[in-house]
Design a protein around this nucleic acid. Structure first.
Lengths: 235, 235
DNA sequence: ATTATCTATAGATCTATAGATAATGC
DNA sequence: ATTATCTATAGATCTATAGATAATGC
């Protein structure tokens, strides 16, 4: 059939810029997949090169070394996720005016990332798993969490404090601590709940998570912070 | 001084059984520490041998290979923790009689392990971090979580279902999912909350966690399961 | 003339084992 | 006679780089 087409487009080779972009993206995607399955040290550059169908030397050519590669993988998605989260927060604050709720803030905190991870894009799906690993890794993991998420975290923490006036600061921080634990574990999509529920729930089902997580934490955080508040009143 | 003591005890060498016990324990402790810091693949048997001050071949002599070593490390503490958790649950159920509360069950689920990790024993402290890593690792991590914690998990899940009659099963499973996320992240003691709170909170402070986690989840789980209950009533 | 990709390889690990040695056990 | 420990090393990676090659860019 193709041979009957008269003015066949020449098999124009892609420009260098395009090839650079395409190859480095393929390496990043492969690394993202493997890192999310086995962690930083569970993956060799040979694994990445093989998965990306390039030679190991090309991985060095584009990303210098393994640490840089990991950082590049992480940066790509973290930046996009942060933009979405800040936007969700700003939108919600504007929409809610004088009456922002705890539920609304927790929702702005969690839902944008959950939606990205659950969107069907395998890149973001893998990135979610990666966040679960990094957030539970001391040392370099924590350094990376700080570098990429401290700004957003502090922004949300300030809002939580404002919305819970009179609550003890420690209580707000601890609530945030639990929230991030449940949140990043949800992003990790480990499959554990699938097994325990005999297939009733799926850890990749971000809609179910987005629906329940804010509800649970809105009630739970209010309970902790208000109980403290109440016990402080009598004095 | 020592030379003045008349009947000096001879420098009796430890028996083979004692030396075996002592050396293998030192290897386990060293491995536990390093695995908790860098994960399974971030540690080499040479690292372990160096930390334990033995030759690499001794690690093989006692534990065959790296996987077996990791399993041995994990088993030692997991068994003890499980016993403590089941005992806490049984004790609570007996004590509470007809009126077990959500708070009481969540407390039995979390507090025993939190106490062990916070007890000051560096072995359990490291083990906590290890659980954080393993629970956020797919593949072999999940296999290990299943093997060591499925029995306890199912036991608690049944109680949660009983104590929340009429709640939708999915809601109970999702609550459990969030609970384990917050719980294992707390065990991991990553130091993130220390930084975000400028030193006000410490992620190694298991007492503060044990005090708040059950309260938050008791209120949060009730909120989700009862809201569902309420919306199901009209029909 | 520059850039993307490939070839070849150095040098540093890492796991694992075979076999020797020096104690303890009986 | 058995067991804990040490010596030595094989064989398999793994990271990283130097230098060649074959395209594109101008």
């Amino acid at each position: 059939m193709a041979s009957t087409i008269p003015d066949e487009t020449p098999p124009r080779r892609r420009s260098q810029k395009e090839r650079r972009e395409e190859t480095s993206t393929r390496i990043l995607d492969s690394a993202e997949k493997l890192f999310s399955e086995h962690g930083l040290h569970g993956v060799t550059l040979r694994d990445v090169a093989y998965e990306a169908k390039v030679d190991t030397s090309l991985v060095h050519y584009y990303f210098s070394n393994k640490d840089q590669l990991f950082r590049s993988v992480f940066t790509r998605r973290a930046s996009e996720a942060n933009v979405a989260r800040i936007k969700a927060l700003d939108d919600y604050l504007e929409k809610s005016g004088d009456n922002p709720t705890l539920h609304g803030i927790v929702d702005a905190f969690t839902t944008p990332a959950l939606r990205l991870v659950g969107s069907g894009d395998p890149g973001f799906r893998n990135f979610g798993a990666l966040v679960g690993i990094v957030n539970n890794t001391p040392g370099w993991g924590q350094a990376m969490m700080s570098e990429f998420f401290d700004d957003v975290s502090r922004r949300f923490l300030e809002i939580f404090k404002q919305i819970l006036p009179g609550a003890r600061e420690e209580d707000v921080y601890w609530c945030y601590h639990f929230l991030t634990g449940a949140f990043t574990f949800s992003l990790a999509q480990t499959g554990r709940i699938d097994k325990l529920s005999d297939g009733l729930c799926h850890s990749t089902d971000m809609d179910s998570i987005a629906e329940r997580l804010p509800m649970l934490f809105a009630a739970g955080m209010a309970s902790i912070c208000e109980k403290r508040l109440a016990s402080a009143q009598p004095s």
